[in-house]
C-alpha cells in the first residue's frame, strides 16, 4: 500500500524532481545530522507517506449559495452532532464535502438539494423570521418533522421529505467515512474499520 501511495504521489509532480537521482560520491558518505531517508539504497524507489488534502487545507464551496450552504451546515450539525469523543458532521467537514459531492452529481440530485435547502430557509423565515442556519434545535425540529414519519418503501411525495431522507443518509455516511471519524475511532480500537480492499484502475 505504501508503495502504491508513493506512486500516486509521484504521479502529481515532475518525474525529474520526483525520482531518486543516482547517488553521487558525495552522497555516499552520510553526514551525522542528515535525515534517515538519505540512506535510501540507490536502486530502490522510495516509499513516501502522503496525506489527503482534507487533512491540510480548507475545501472551497462552489455549488451552493451562501444561504444554502449555511442551511446545509446547520442541517448536517443537527442530523449528526458530535457525541462524546466522536466527531460530528461539523468536525468532519460534511457540508463542504457535500457541496463538492452534490456539485459533481447529476442534475436531479442537485435540484433536490438546492430546492430542499431553499425550503428550509423559507420555512425558517416564515415561522421564525430568520435563516435556517440561525434556528435553535427546537425551532429546527418543527421544520424537520418529516424525519419523524415512520419508514415506508415508497419515496415520499413531499419534496422536502425526500430531500431530508437523502440528506439524513448522506450526512451520516459522509461523517462515518471521514478522516476525522476514522482517526478518533482508531484511538479507541486497534481495528481499522475504515479499511477496504481497493481495486485500482485496470488498464
Amino acid at each position: 500500500m505504501k508503495r502504491r501511495r508513493a506512486i500516486q504521489t509521484l504521479a502529481g509532480i515532475s518525474v525529474a524532481g520526483a525520482l531518486p537521482l543516482p547517488a553521487s560520491p558525495q552522497q555516499t558518505s552520510v553526514a551525522p545530522n542528515q535525515p534517515t531517508g538519505a540512506n535510501q539504497p540507490p536502486n530502490e524507489t522510495p516509499k513516501l507517506d502522503s496525506a489527503v488534502a482534507e487533512a491540510a487545507a480548507e475545501s472551497v464551496p462552489r455549488l451552493f449559495s451562501s444561504a444554502q450552504f449555511g442551511a446545509l451546515g446547520r442541517l448536517a450539525e443537527l442530523l449528526m452532532p458530535a457525541a462524546g469523543e466522536n466527531p460530528g458532521a461539523k468536525e468532519a467537514g460534511v457540508a463542504e464535502f457535500l457541496d463538492f459531492l452534490i456539485g459533481a452529481s447529476p442534475a436531479d440530485r442537485q435540484t433536490l438539494y438546492r430546492e430542499g435547502l431553499d425550503k428550509l430557509n423559507v420555512e425558517a423565515r416564515n415561522r421564525y423570521g430568520k435563516h435556517f442556519a440561525e434556528t435553535t434545535g427546537t425551532e429546527a425540529g418543527t421544520i424537520l418533522a418529516p424525519l419523524r414519519r415512520a419508514w415506508t418503501d415508497e419515496s415520499p411525495e413531499d419534496p422536502l421529505a425526500r430531500f431530508l431522507q437523502a440528506a439524513k443518509q448522506d450526512v451520516m455516511e459522509a461523517t462515518l467515512n471521514s478522516r476525522e471519524w476514522s482517526v478518533t475511532r482508531a484511538k479507541r480500537s486497534r481495528r481499522a474499520g475504515s479499511l477496504g480492499m481497493y481495486w485500482y484502475p485496470i488498464e
Binding site: M1, R4, E54, L101, A104, N177, S178, S194, L195, Y200
Partner: peptide
C-alpha cells in the same frame, strides 16, 4: 488491489456520482 482507508478515496466511499 490494495488496502485503503475510505477517507483516502476521492469521494469518501460514495463513488463518482
Amino acid at each position: 488491489r490494495g488496502l485503503k482507508h475510505v477517507y483516502e478515496l476521492p469521494y469518501r466511499g460514495f463513488g463518482k456520482p
